[in-house]
């Protein structure tokens, strides 16, 4: 945890320095920004914003977009083996939605002056992260259900407050994404329910998946509040609305009765209702494992990144072809005659 604390201090110091510099350069606009955030107004792409606010949003939105794209892999792993045509259709639609979410989020991030290409390059170079959860393998069909219920459930708990985030394009992307995510989450729950109520072998498969995905799902909320590098500043800027621990507790409270309804247990003997606090107590998270996964030492880190890099590299000739074609036929759409080009459109 020492590394996180050091990082946190460095980040906070850098943030404060940037902030002081921004405010010194443009005190009027800095004051207007602060007032807009305080009044819960939305910050829009053309508005002035502190450089550290911009950098923090790019980091968070890129990581979010990357998570959607890498997150396709563990589920796509089961598309060709889905056990019924109905389930196969649901899974294909879900993986397609995830690619779409990635596209929304890259577009939203681009409003801050970066580009999808640049962000993907950083992902491929290991310079930007994606959610630690996708470094775990999907070993059985039930994992598809556990991901829907727990991973999407944790994502929703995290993301619903982002619909009120201070940065307009991010908030609007999240409204669309959360609608689809809650649909996926219900489908995952329903998949697990079918297994839990199925044959003994299916029930066992469901329980095993929940046992493997429970703790990693709790880790999706990030490090504990006292060790969270970006939390304080993000909350002050209203990028983030609740602390990691607060959201994690909320998630546990939601999951406990759902697990009961599923007829499955959560792999934590310390979960019990705390009458006094009006919430569930639960066991300690293995933060060493979390740090290891973040450092690249999780079960699938190398595999996930390698597949992403390979898809990108092997697709380079396709992207080159599309770009070359667009340059030759400056109106864009293949098959168009090129006679309707408007001035200014001819640069592909």
């Amino acid at each position: 945890m020492a590394a996180v604390t050091a990082h946190q201090q460095k980040h906070a110091a850098a943030g404060m320095a940037d902030r002081a510099q921004d405010a010194a350069q443009d005190p009027v606009r800095a004051a207007a920004f602060d007032a807009a955030v305080a009044a819960d107004d939305r910050i829009e792409p053309r508005d002035w914003m502190p450089e550290a606010y911009r950098a923090s949003l790019v980091r968070q939105m890129a990581q979010h977009a990357h998570s959607e794209i890498i997150g396709m892999q563990p589920e796509a792993n089961w598309i060709t083996r889905a056990p019924s045509l109905r389930r196969k259709a649901i899974l294909m639609a879900k993986v397609q939605d995830e690619a779409g979410h990635g596209l929304y989020l890259y577009s939203a991030a681009e409003t801050l002056g970066t580009s999808r290409e640049e962000l993907l390059d950083k992902l491929h170079a290991g310079r930007q992260r994606y959610s630690s959860i996708f470094n775990y393998p999907t070993l059985t069909w039930a994992d598809v259900g556990a991901i829907g219920w727990l991973v999407d459930g944790a994502a929703i708990t995290n993301q619903v407050p982002l619909c009120r985030c201070s940065y307009g394009p991010y908030a609007r992307a999240m409204v669309r994404i959360c609608k689809e995510e809650s649909f996926h989450q219900r489908q995952g729950y329903e998949l697990l329910l079918a297994l839990s109520r199925g044959t003994p072998a299916q029930h066992e498969m469901a329980q095993d998946a929940v046992n493997r995905w429970w703790w990693p799902s709790l880790m999706m909320f990030g490090p504990p509040d006292e060790a969270s590098a970006h939390s304080e500043q993000s909350m002050a800027w209203k990028i983030k609305r609740h602390s990691n621990d607060e959201l994690r507790r909320r998630f546990v409270d939601i999951c406990v009765p759902q697990a009961e309804a599923l007829g499955l247990t959560l792999p934590d003997p310390d979960i019990r209702w705390n009458e006094e606090l009006g919430r569930h107590d639960f066991g300690d998270i293995d933060w060493t494992e979390f740090q290891e996964v973040l450092k690249g030492n999780g079960p699938c880190n190398e595999q996930r990144l390698a597949q992403r890099r390979t898809a990108h590299q092997e697709g380079a000739w396709v992207r080159d072809a599309a770009a070359a074609y667009a340059t030759k036929h400056a109106t864009g759409r293949p098959g168009s005659t090129g006679t309707t080009t408007q001035p200014g459109e001819a640069t592909a």
Partner: peptide
């Protein structure tokens, strides 16, 4: 087409190939 998921050359094709696969699966059903 479902085998392409996660391997397409560009994100738009992840969407397009999955979309076509899904249409065909609907027809098959």
């Amino acid at each position: 087409l479902g085998e392409w998921a996660g391997h397409a050359p560009v994100l738009e094709e992840e969407v397009a190939l999955a979309n076509i696969a899904l249409d065909l699966l609907g027809q098959a059903r």
